[in-house]
Nucleic acid binder design. Sequence first.
DNA 1: TCTTGACTTCGAGTGCGCTCCAACTGAAAG
DNA 2: CTTTCAGTTGGAGCGCACTCGAAGTCAAGA
Lengths: 121, 121
Amino acid sequence: MDETMTVGEAAERVGLTTYTLRWYEQEGLVAPVGRDSAGRRRYTAEDLNWLVLLTRLRRTGMPVRDMRRYAELARQGEATRAARRALFERHRDRVLARMAELQEDLTVLNHKIEMYGKGDR
Amino acid sequence: MDETMTVGEAAERVGLTTYTLRWYEQEGLVAPVGRDSAGRRRYTAEDLNWLVLLTRLRRTGMPVRDMRRYAELARQGEATRAARRALFERHRDRVLARMAELQEDLTVLNHKIEMYGKGDR
DNA sequence: TCTTGACTTCGAGTGCGCTCCAACTGAAAG
DNA sequence: CTTTCAGTTGGAGCGCACTCGAAGTCAAGA
């Protein structure tokens, strides 16, 4: 029962492609992943958790540039705790702003649909 | 009191650049805009309204491809009313799904921030 | 042993949505 | 009349986030 997995398994579990996983590593979004004797990546559960977090940051619109910055901070350990917290807070505020905007646009969309409704149903 | 405006004014009012406005026209997202005697675009209030709607569709993540499709339908008049309504409804559903996802990711983000909170404030 | 298939690296290519440049034109202010 | 300035066109270029191709390696199953 080896707890690590290949890039293929990892990709499937986090919903990214193997291409993207390797690219994330290359871009420094993920710390260098451990290798087996043949030089193949072995992802640990921790690696997986990190990737899942990354996918959430991506989905909420964080640019890769900022994710890299966050990864760098994380690799520097405890000293950057406050900075990482601040980064998350700024991001959360952007997400909240985005949701508010979305909410408003949605309202307009709904009005538009209502208007179409008059006269065809 | 001419009710029309130049590309520059229009751009400023809708929050897009003149480049983008011309590109939208070229891409068929906007019907050919009227010209003055010197061949310069003159945007009417209706043109403006259309552009505002487009910016909302864009902001809510509608691909340019779909906006073009919508513009084509709109230009074909009443016959496409139902199709346009359907297009809006599909889009609204996608926006709703997106907001739900965002909501969930936001929750995780907040948990993360709380964790950072422990031990540094 | 042979084949299959998932992995490796490196670099090139793709799709999207703009964004800008070059060369030019015309109207209006000084 | 000259300068300035906003506009015109066509086409090239850009930033982002992947995505893929080529050529090769390695381990495991038939």
